[in-house]
Amino acid sequence: MKDVLARFKFRGDTALAELFKKDVQAAFKHSFCIKDPLLIPIPLSHERLKERGFNQSVIIASLLDKPILQPLVKIHQSKQSKKKKNERLDQKGLFHIKQTDAIVQRDIILVDDIYTTGATIYDAARILKDAGAKSVSSFTLIRS
């Protein structure tokens, strides 16, 4: 799976997402009973998006056929994959929010490609809860 994720995420082979589609949909259906969830993919910084050309979390979210909103903005930092566990856990303020009206009293599901320490998900969830989300859960393709 590590090689497949590297091809998908770092080498731009986004067609590989189709390999995950049935499993992603089945796992999502099994894990969530929320009526009308709002999917929020974890964003990339503007610089990282420009470098990569796509956001892998948006592609994963699009496999679920649910409403997607992108109110979070990622603050550019060094790559997560280059950081040690303690460095990741100590991070705060990874995001800011640009739009809040659509998330107030909504059940949010954050979508990301990989869950390593949880720092990214926890920081995004905190911001969304502070902005009025009813609940925030997460759905990731891989747990490392």
Rank of each mutant, 00 (worst) to 15 (best):
G53V: 08
I59F: 03
E87C: 03
V24M: 13
L5D: 08
H46E: 15
F95Y: 08
V136P: 05
T100H: 08
S135H: 04
T117K: 03
G118P: 06
I109D: 11
L72G: 02
L141Q: 05
H46S: 14
L141V: 03
T117H: 01
A133R: 07
R11G: 04
F32A: 13
P67R: 07
A61V: 06
N55K: 07
V136E: 14
D130L: 14
T120E: 03
L128R: 02
V111N: 04
S144Q: 13
A125D: 03
Y122P: 00
K66G: 00
T14M: 02
F32Y: 15
I114W: 01
D90Q: 15
R52A: 09
H76K: 10
K50L: 14
A17L: 04
L49D: 01
V104C: 02
P71L: 09
K2N: 12
T120P: 01
I121H: 00
A61L: 11
K9I: 03
I127V: 14
Y122D: 14
L128K: 05
I109C: 10
V4G: 02
S57T: 05
H46I: 08
D101N: 12
S81V: 13
R143C: 09
Q91M: 14
D65C: 09
A61I: 04
G93N: 13
K79Q: 13
Q80T: 11
F8A: 10
G132C: 05
R52Q: 10
K82F: 06
I42D: 10
K134G: 03
S81W: 12
E51A: 07
L64A: 05
Q25A: 14
D90E: 15
I114H: 00
L110P: 06
K9M: 05
R48D: 04
R11E: 15
A125G: 10
F8C: 08
Q56D: 12
V136F: 05
S57Y: 03
S138R: 01
A125C: 00
V136I: 05
Q77V: 02
F54E: 11
Q25P: 11
V73T: 10
A26F: 07
L38W: 03
V58A: 08
D130Y: 05
P41Y: 08
K98R: 12
L19C: 02
P37W: 12
I60D: 07
Y115H: 12
F32C: 14
Q70T: 14
L72I: 02
A61P: 05
I68K: 06
S45W: 04
D107I: 06
A133Q: 09
D13T: 00
F32K: 12
P41I: 10
V111L: 11
S31H: 04
G12W: 07
K84G: 15
Q70R: 07
R7W: 00
K129Y: 04
A131Q: 02
L19M: 08
S45T: 00
E87F: 02
L110W: 07
D23W: 09
N86F: 11
K84M: 10
L110G: 06
K84V: 04
K98L: 09
A6R: 09
H96V: 01
L44T: 03
G12C: 09
R88D: 08
S81F: 11
I114Y: 00
I121Q: 02
F10G: 06
R88W: 04
I127R: 02
A133S: 14
I121V: 12
Q99D: 13
Q105K: 13
S144G: 13
N86V: 13
D112K: 03
I127L: 15
M1K: 00
I75L: 13
D65T: 10
D130G: 03
D107H: 14
K85Q: 14
